[in-house]
Design a protein around this nucleic acid. Structure first.
Lengths: 164, 164
DNA sequence: CTGAATATTTCAGCTTGTCAAGCAATTGGG
DNA sequence: CCCAATTGCTTGACAAGCTGAAATATTCAG
């Protein structure tokens, strides 16, 4: 049981670890270029796609709501995000990116060549292959058909969460 | 420049983002099971493979040496790591895992089925393929492992197929 | 209306991380 | 040999992320 599964798997796991590390580095670097921290960049990126209440933000970021308060505070104090009351429920505060926040998010996205550049080394065919392998690995059925849908651990949050 | 490269690449980037997020979650979870933070687990894992001076730890973790001091402090106060003088250079302090630290690192490693489980969905051939694709993506020419490439060994020329 | 549930914030406390300053030991030039 | 620069590590101050508990406001069920 203590024995490692097999050398090939270990090798692949290590490679994934490297990918994760590099992704992280690049994400932080890109965020820093806009004087944002990684957490701020992730939150802003989420909001740029869709405004949402604090509570949902916490769910997306998988952290406590009280934590989101601080991150939004800092973004708000820099004029990138705005808190807006929800007319339907006055307990709720919608976090909404300002025009400048939207622009920053857009710049951020284009800065994220980190993933584009390494992928450029692969041909289109290889990228397709990689996509399929990753989908299978994540248990995201490529085919919408559910005959063998894995369901392990819940595929969950789709592409929403690019953070790291 | 604001235009996204192409749908396929975007899709793969999103998938990698998901892999990164899941990897992270699982790593933190596994660390928490042993009452360790992610940073502590990473440091302990490094030491379990090879004892090293503080300075080198900082390099491996890509952070400032002053930061390592604190992390080692906490591990040391829990009896998982020990500081030992380097006889060859009295400025240097070697960080060395205690017996308990080694055991914890070992448990940690086996807890990290996160990568093994999802990879279990892939056949050996698929894993080999994934390994090669990731290596190419990372720009790692050849792993020290000289295992032959079953197929797709070549750069898989011919972008002819593969959608956009 | 009353009480439970929900959304958010505040606060205390911890860990990570940076930077600047400081101390100890090593090293190299004179 | 001796002094100065360098190297390895720690300390202190500080910002940010994160958690958990408590406080506040609002909604909702009975």
């Amino acid at each position: 049981m203590t024995a490692r599964p097999d050398p090939l798997t270990v090798e692949v796991v290590d490679l994934i670890g490297t990918v994760v590390a590099r992704f992280h580095e690049e994400y932080e670097r890109a965020a820093a270029e806009h004087s944002l921290t990684g957490a701020q960049a992730r939150l802003l990126r989420l909001l740029a796609m869709e405004s949402m209440p604090m509570r949902k933000l916490a769910q997306c970021l998988k952290c406590e709501p009280s934590n989101v308060t601080g991150i939004v505070d800092r973004l708000e104090s820099r004029g990138l995000v705005e808190r807006r009351p929800d007319p339907a429920d006055r307990r709720v505060k919608l976090a909404v990116p300002t025009t400048e926040g939207q622009a920053t998010a857009e710049h951020l996205r284009t800065s994220l060549d980190f993933a584009r550049e390494p992928l450029g080394r692969l041909t289109a065919a290889e990228r397709t292959l990689l996509k399929q392998l990753l989908q299978r690995m994540l248990g995201l059925g490529d085919a919408p058909d559910a005959s063998d849908s894995p369901e392990a651990g819940g595929p969950a949050e789709g592409p929403g969460r690019g953070g790291a």
